[in-house]
Simulated scan of single mutants.
Amino acid sequence: MARNARRHEEPIKGCPMDTMTITKSLGAFCGALLVLLLGAWAGEAIYHVGTEAHGDEEHAQGYAIEVPDTGETEVAEVAEEVPFEEVYVNASAEEGEKLWRQCASCHKLEDGANATGPYLSNVVGRSKGIADGYAYSEVLATMEGDWTPENLSGFLLNPKEYAPGTKMAYRGMDDVDDRANLIAYLATQ
């Protein structure tokens, strides 16, 4: 009989852990999970603003800083945009040449060499919608006037707004100095 008793105490072959080890591991996992959940609940109760535990539902996170009233009303200074004509007078063709790299992916400077966009040789002062061999969108093909520096600036600022329906897929150039420099560079070509 002693032999049979020892047989039951030996672990089952092929099972690395006995039932007691599995029970202890499961208990440790559940205990750790309980500690984390209680910690999250306690943290929420302590730090959360706007619950009944804190009284008022209108609490804001942060501090209100009282500022003495001087009686003067401050008006935020709005930067007035300088007219394009004034900026264009001082434009730099050298700086514009650096900006040209953006345009060079769709336009060429050689006379008559169209690409995705029309060639831009002698564009400053040229009639709108006139570039030999280029198929303009209807809006630009029928647009009156010349590409003056002011007109080019308006187009470069927002092509889709200046000429609705244009084929030019460019979001625009916001900086008035950059537009003036680029146009000054194009005027030298």
Results as ranks from 00 to 15, higher is better:
Met1Thr: 14
Arg3Lys: 06
Arg3Val: 10
Ala5Ile: 11
Arg7His: 11
Arg7Thr: 15
Glu9Pro: 06
Glu10Gly: 02
Gly14Val: 04
Pro16Gly: 08
Asp18Leu: 11
Ile22Met: 14
Lys24Met: 15
Ser25Met: 14
Ser25Cys: 13
Gly27Ser: 15
Gly27Thr: 15
Cys30Gln: 12
Cys30Glu: 09
Ala32Asp: 09
Ala32Pro: 09
Gly39Met: 14
Gly39His: 08
Gly39Arg: 07
Ala42Met: 14
Gly43Ile: 14
Glu44Val: 14
Ala45Val: 14
Tyr47Ser: 07
His48Leu: 14
Gly50Gln: 08
Gly50Thr: 12
Ala53Tyr: 08
Ala53Lys: 12
His54Tyr: 11
His54Pro: 13
Gly55Ile: 14
Gly55Met: 09
Ala60Cys: 09
Gln61Val: 15
Gly62Trp: 13
Gly62Phe: 14
Tyr63Pro: 06
Ile65Lys: 13
Thr70Ala: 10
Thr70Pro: 00
Thr73Lys: 10
Thr73Asn: 06
Glu74Tyr: 05
Val75Asp: 10
Ala76Phe: 04
Glu77Ala: 08
Glu77Trp: 01
Ala79Leu: 07
Ala79Met: 04
Val82Phe: 01
Val82Ala: 05
Pro83Gln: 06
Pro83Ala: 08
Glu86Asp: 13
Val87Glu: 12
Tyr88Thr: 07
Val89Glu: 07
Ala91Pro: 05
Ala91Arg: 02
Ser92Lys: 02
Ser92Arg: 02
Ser92Pro: 01
Ala93Lys: 00
Glu94Gln: 06
Gly96Val: 01
Glu97Ser: 06
Lys98Tyr: 00
Arg101Ala: 00
Gln102Trp: 05
Gln102Glu: 03
Cys103Lys: 04
Ser105Leu: 07
Lys108Met: 12
Glu110Tyr: 00
Asp111Glu: 12
Pro118Cys: 10
Tyr119Glu: 01
Ser121Leu: 10
Ser121Asp: 12
Asn122Tyr: 06
Val123Lys: 03
Gly125Ala: 08
Gly125Asn: 05
Ile130Glu: 04
Ala131Lys: 00
Ala131Ser: 07
Asp132Gly: 05
Gly133Thr: 13
Gly133Lys: 04
Ala135Met: 09
Ala135Cys: 03
Tyr136Leu: 02
Tyr136Thr: 12
Tyr136Phe: 15
Ser137Arg: 00
Ser137Met: 02
Glu138His: 01
Val139Tyr: 01
Leu140Pro: 11
Ala141Leu: 12
Gly145Lys: 02
Asp146Glu: 08
Asp146Leu: 11
Trp147Met: 02
Thr148Pro: 00
Asn151Arg: 11
Asn151Phe: 03
Leu152His: 00
Leu152Phe: 08
Leu152Asn: 01
Leu152Trp: 02
Leu156Ile: 03
Pro159Gln: 04
Glu161Ile: 11
Tyr162Cys: 03
Tyr162Lys: 08
Ala163Asp: 02
Pro164Thr: 06
Arg171Ile: 03
Gly172Lys: 02
Met173Glu: 07
Asp174Val: 04
Asp175Trp: 05
Val176Thr: 10
Val176Met: 07
Asp177His: 04
Asn181Glu: 04
Tyr185Cys: 02
Leu186Lys: 00
Gln189Asp: 01
